[in-house]
Write a protein that binds this DNA or RNA. Structure first.
Lengths: 127, 127
DNA sequence: CAGTATCCTTTCCGATACTG
DNA sequence: CAGTATCGGAAAGGATACTG
């Protein structure tokens, strides 16, 4: 994008769509975890901590559909399924990490802004 | 972040939080619109198109709380309220734009991946 | 182990009506 | 003009039980 030029409305909408997908409660956690290497379903689940079985399955399916991860079923019993980032998924991890870095470095500023805002507006609220 | 090192779990969670905030249906559209210059409430509303009054008010309040925008009330009748990006908001627009660029440039790849995935999985679904 | 199916609660968000 | 208040439908997401 040219400096000074902001996103046009149509582009912004598509971006917003993707951001909504990726900005959901779990997607970034999953992609981040897989960024360190392949993981199986339950390993992934333990790594993330408090994700429900349902949401992990849904998130993984969406990421697979979007071409970000590969699902590899090992023909053993009991079955094992290994998830890995695709090349596309790795590419995605770059701007995501840049964004993540900014967020991590500025989180305290946001918290401060919130505290300040709340302080100035905690008046007259209830009876 | 060091290359090769992915985000740790705690950082990832904060980032995920911010992404969820920013990745909601309207935030990025509002910030993007304000990136081009200050706008008043209804001007912003027209620019974005189909946002409801309620969601615009909510989104603006959240952004103000996070220190991303300033709300300036002009003492005239009828009242006018002008919204502008803060310095912090402008800084935020950088990584957001980087992310947005990637998303815009790769949107077609995602669409293709989805179509391909759906093609391979449209079998045996109903009775 | 790796899921799917179902239920149920919570949250989101649009429509509408009203206010300073 | 710039909001707030209230309501109701839709969607997200957790808990639990079940399956290959």
């Amino acid at each position: 994008m040219l400096p000074g030029e902001q996103m046009d409305s149509a582009t912004c909408k598509r971006v917003s769509d993707l951001l909504a997908r990726v900005g959901d409660k779990w997607t970034l956690l999953v992609v981040g975890s897989l960024g360190a290497g392949p993981l199986r379903f339950n390993a992934l689940r333990r790594q993330i901590g408090d994700i429900s079985q349902k949401m992990l399955a849904t998130t993984l399916r969406n990421l697979e559909r979007d071409g970000m991860i590969n699902r590899h079923v090992l023909p053993v019993t009991p079955p094992q399924v290994e998830y890995t980032l695709t090349g596309f998924g790795c590419e995605f991890l770059r701007p995501a990490s840049a964004f993540a870095d900014w967020a991590a470095q500025n989180a305290h500023r946001i918290e401060h802004a919130r505290a300040s805002f709340d302080r100035q507006h905690r008046d007259v609220p209830p009876a």
